[in-house]
């Protein structure tokens, strides 16, 4: 996935002279995960910019650039540090278009590594997608494969919106996938049916997509797997239609359960498909507590076993 994102950034920097990459260690160092490796060498210090260490100013300055017709692509080093830029994202990036009735807008793509499973330090493993989806105005995207990462990032960087592009660190190098070298887009705001099935719908995204795929395979379940790809705005139609067909909805995400994206999805299923259900909606998510230090993360993040057990349970109704 690292290579796929790097390739997308290369395509964007090449086609749009007003696009810049900025953040801590993104230039000479190529980013702590090496996602921006080689880009500064190719495009120069003026376009792949090492900034001082201050997340709020990185996001805030990006907003200023975007207002002036640039397309900044800031990188925030880890999800936990992004809360320092939270005020800029929700108070300004999310609201600018509304408060100026579209006479001004903030086209920018904020890349941030998210989620756990790589035994990282405290504050390096959060899954904050719901936090940024609640107030409206920010597009929140999370890919689950290298192919999706490239196409979604290219699309994001061509939109005239602030997009939060969440990159699951665990998937950066988890598996290899051949992807086209050329330019292609994947639509934002559309979910992807990864696998067709008739007896159960599993709605998931990000790190949990491969976990769900393995659990379904292990259980040989006739499950339809919906990868949201975009958390906000939610593609409700795709999962509602699927749930109407299968009659069962299992929601799997790594973020903690309470007030998570799963709660929103479950509420929409309750509103629009409750009479089609043969079983209660079930959520598989991390416990409702702060992300632990790495020694405990295997007890915290949902795994194939947990997903498998809930597949059995939902099919038992």
């Amino acid at each position: 996935m690292v290579t796929a994102i790097n390739s997308a950034l290369d395509i964007i920097l090449k086609e749009n002279d007003n696009a810049v990459v900025l953040g801590e260690d993104v230039g000479v160092d190529g980013g702590v995960f090496r996602v921006t490796d080689g880009l500064q060498k190719k495009y120069g210090e003026g376009r792949v910019i090492d900034t001082p260490l201050a997340e709020s100013a990185i996001i805030g300055a990006s907003i200023g650039m975007a207002l002036e017709g640039m397309h900044p692509i800031p990188e925030i080093q880890f999800a936990g540090f992004m809360f320092l830029g939270y005020s800029q994202l929700v108070n300004h990036a999310a609201r600018y278009r509304a408060r100026t009735r579209s006479t001004m807008s903030v086209p920018m793509t904020v890349r941030v590594p998210v989620s756990g499973g790589i035994r990282a330090l405290e504050h390096h493993s959060e899954s904050p997608e719901a936090v940024y989806s609640n107030m409206g105005g920010l597009v929140v995207v999370e890919p689950s494969t290298p192919y999706d990462a490239k196409g979604l990032l290219i699309k994001a960087a061509r939109m005239n919106d602030p997009v939060l592009f969440l990159e699951p660190t665990k998937l950066y190098r988890l598996f290899k996938q051949e992807i086209p070298e050329e330019d292609y887009e994947i639509p934002i705001g559309k979910a992807n049916v990864v696998k067709d099935g008739d007896s159960l719908t599993i709605i998931t995204y990000g790190t949990m997509v491969p976990v769900v795929q393995n659990a379904v395979k292990a259980k040989n379940a006739d499950a339809e797997i919906v990868d949201l790809r975009t958390i906000n705005p939610l593609d409700e139609n795709t999962f509602i239609e699927s749930v109407k067909k299968t009659g069962r909805a299992l929601i799997v995400h790594e973020a903690s359960a309470s007030f998570g994206a799963g709660a929103e999805i479950a509420a929409r299923i309750a509103e629009k498909a409750i009479y089609d259900l043969d079983a209660p909606v079930i959520r598989v998510a991390s416990p409702s507590l702060p992300y632990p230090l790495p020694g405990y993360e295997n007890y915290y993040v949902p795994n194939e076993k947990r997903v498998g057990e809930e597949i059995d349970r939902i099919l038992s109704f």
Binding site: A57, I59, G60, A61, S62, I63, G64, L67, E68, G69
Partner: peptide, 9 residues
């Protein structure tokens, strides 16, 4: 910080 970004542009 917006001022910084507008100035950068």
């Amino acid at each position: 910080p917006h001022g910084v970004g507008v100035a950068f542009a």
